[in-house]
Design a protein around this nucleic acid. Structure first.
Length: 268
DNA sequence: CTCCTATCTCGTCAGGTGTA
DNA sequence: TACACCTGACGAGATAGGAG
């Protein structure tokens, strides 16, 4: 949707092209390129709402950062400053704090309730630099997907049954994950992020491209969610503004009627 | 119960916008 | 100017509600 923005600064007075350029729209004469020269895009919801809120006291602003109700789970933000945050394929967040503390939370759940039961062990002589993370997978097939930066790698342990007996007893059939530095010897099937300069083979290039695409899609996914949240907030703001203006309008009409009665007394 | 339709939500793509 | 971000558009899947 393209919005015709006249010289008015207020975003309230925008109108669709169908409303402002009906003839051109009906004839289909103006192609998209020409239309883009004429029209400018509607400002973002955040911008519009912030503009409103600066004019109208009491209208909440859309914050630059994510609100507490969505986005990064609050328990992660408040309990420790994580150095890395991962998201699983089921939407859970995994935060790794400075001291190696690992927190798992569900988005949408609040506070501590979002914490997953988590078993973390370094016993059983793990490989150098490795931290083993275990938790109950919630997806139907039991598989979890991690998005990791290039500095670290998360590996699902394909040798769970070979784990030490004390570990197996503690975890049952839970899958095991390892968070390792890329320098650590990696098991088969590990996708390790490397700097572009170190890529040589077509396979590595393809893996890098895939990783970049996954990262881009994930970011865009989150951006779309955030955008929809802002849009809902914007619509709510508009609705409340309509309600306020209706009340004002009603009061003004009543006031006008009163003044009319005063200024024009009945002549019987 | 099954089918159809409307509505909603979500992920993805494309392209505009903002900024360093 | 490159890059990250934002958002409209679109399609797919889920869900609700009504009709037969």
């Amino acid at each position: 949707v393209w919005w015709h923005v006249p010289t008015v600064p207020a975003s309230w007075e925008v109108a669709t092209i169908a409303e402002t350029d009906e003839s051109a729209e009906s004839e289909g004469v103006i192609d998209s390129h020409k239309r883009r020269e004429i029209l400018s895009r509607r400002p973002s919801y955040r911008k519009i709402l912030n503009e409103i809120s600066s004019d109208v006291p009491g209208v909440p602003k859309i914050e630059e950062e994510k609100s507490e109700e969505e986005g990064t789970p609050p328990n992660i933000a408040t309990m420790a400053v994580p150095t890395s945050i991962y998201q699983t394929s089921t939407g859970q967040y995994i935060a790794i704090a400075q001291g190696g503390t690992i927190q798992i939370s569900n988005p949408g759940s609040d506070g501590v309730q979002g914490l997953q039961a988590l078993t973390m062990t370094n016993s059983g002589a793990p490989p150098p630099g490795a931290t083993i993370v275990q938790y109950a997978a919630q997806s139907a097939d039991g598989t979890q997907q991690f998005f990791v930066p290039g500095s670290q790698v998360v590996v699902q342990d394909e040798e769970t049954e070979l784990a030490p007996s004390h570990m197996a007893a503690a975890t049952g059939d839970m899958p095991t994950y390892q968070i390792r530095a890329p320098t650590t010897a990696l098991p088969q099937g590990v996708v390790m992020a490397a700097s572009p300069g170190s890529l040589h083979s077509p396979q590595q290039l393809a893996e890098e491209a895939t990783r970049k695409r996954e990262l881009r899609l994930m970011k865009n996914r989150e951006a779309a969610k955030e955008c929809r949240r802002r849009k809902k907030e914007y619509v709510k703001c508009l609705e409340s503004r309509v309600a306020v203006l209706e009340v004002q309008n009603k009061k003004l009409i009543e006031e006008l009627e009163t003044l009319k009665d005063i200024c024009s007394p009945k002549t019987d």
